[in-house]
């Protein structure tokens, strides 16, 4: 495996699994206007995943769809934050906000990478994420005094921290104004560990693709 492939897969798997979960909100968000907005964000995340998979696939001699669908659940490198299936708006929008905050820190670091392709991809993603951050901030501003939303942020905060490598975590804490959680709170939430929801999602997302043998066309 090339040196950058694991990093690309971390990014791509995060965006894919998050986008996949969030796409489930299409048609059932709190307002129809938000349906359209939230769905576009989910589509963008999947678009980012595809771009990162394509770059990784060129190194690994495969293609983006194979990376997205044809690995075993334990081979995915996504963080537990994105694996949770959150079908209530307080949690869904709290994760959206926390993810964008964490992703901003990660993307900033990737933009400064010495690998020009990686830095270029990060810059491209960042231009779209700027709009996602605006959307997340708008919701955060609207709901930050709502008990349901605050509880959801509190619950998901350790997951968001665990999405980033150690060295980037203080920056996330500074951005959000939240205190870094203790190691105990991070247990089971670190990248490399998986929640049961990932296997459930994988089962569903690959079910059509697995239903037909080689020679099938989609």
């Amino acid at each position: 495996m090339s040196e950058r492939a694991p990093r690309l897969l971390e990014l791509a798997d995060d965006e894919l699994v998050l986008g996949w979960h969030e796409s489930e909100w299409t048609g059932i968000a709190p307002t129809l206007e938000e349906d359209v907005a939230f769905s576009s964000i989910a589509q963008n995340e999947i678009g980012h995943a595809r771009a990162a998979y394509e770059l990784a696939a060129a190194d690994l001699g495969t293609d983006a769809d194979a990376l997205a669908f044809d690995r075993r659940p334990e081979e995915y490198r996504c963080a537990p934050l994105v694996e949770l299936r959150l079908l209530d708006w307080a949690h869904a929008i709290a994760r959206r906000w926390l993810y964008e905050e964490a992703d901003a820190v990660r993307i900033a670091a990737l933009k400064a990478d010495t690998d020009p392709e990686l830095a270029g991809l990060a810059a491209k993603i960042d231009r779209e994420e700027a709009y996602h951050r605006m959307h997340a901030a708008m919701w955060h501003e609207r709901l930050r005094h709502e008990p349901r939303f605050r509880e959801a942020v509190e619950e998901l905060w350790p997951y968001a921290v665990a999405l980033l490598p150690q060295e980037l975590r203080p920056e996330l804490a500074a951005r959000t104004g939240l205190a870094l959680p203790s190691d105990t709170l991070l247990q089971g939430k670190e990248r490399g560990e998986h929640t049961p929801q990932l296997a459930e999602l994988w089962d569903e997302m690959t079910s059509v693709r697995r239903s037909a043998p080689a020679g099938a066309r989609w």
């Binding site: 299409t26 048609g27 349906d35 769905s39 576009s40 989910a42 595809r50 669908f69």
Partner: peptide
Amino acid sequence: LRAPTLQRKLALTAKVQDEA
């Protein structure tokens, strides 16, 4: 949630989004 390729996933999501 079951679309079998990335392209189909994007197109189907966009289609359902349009209905909303």
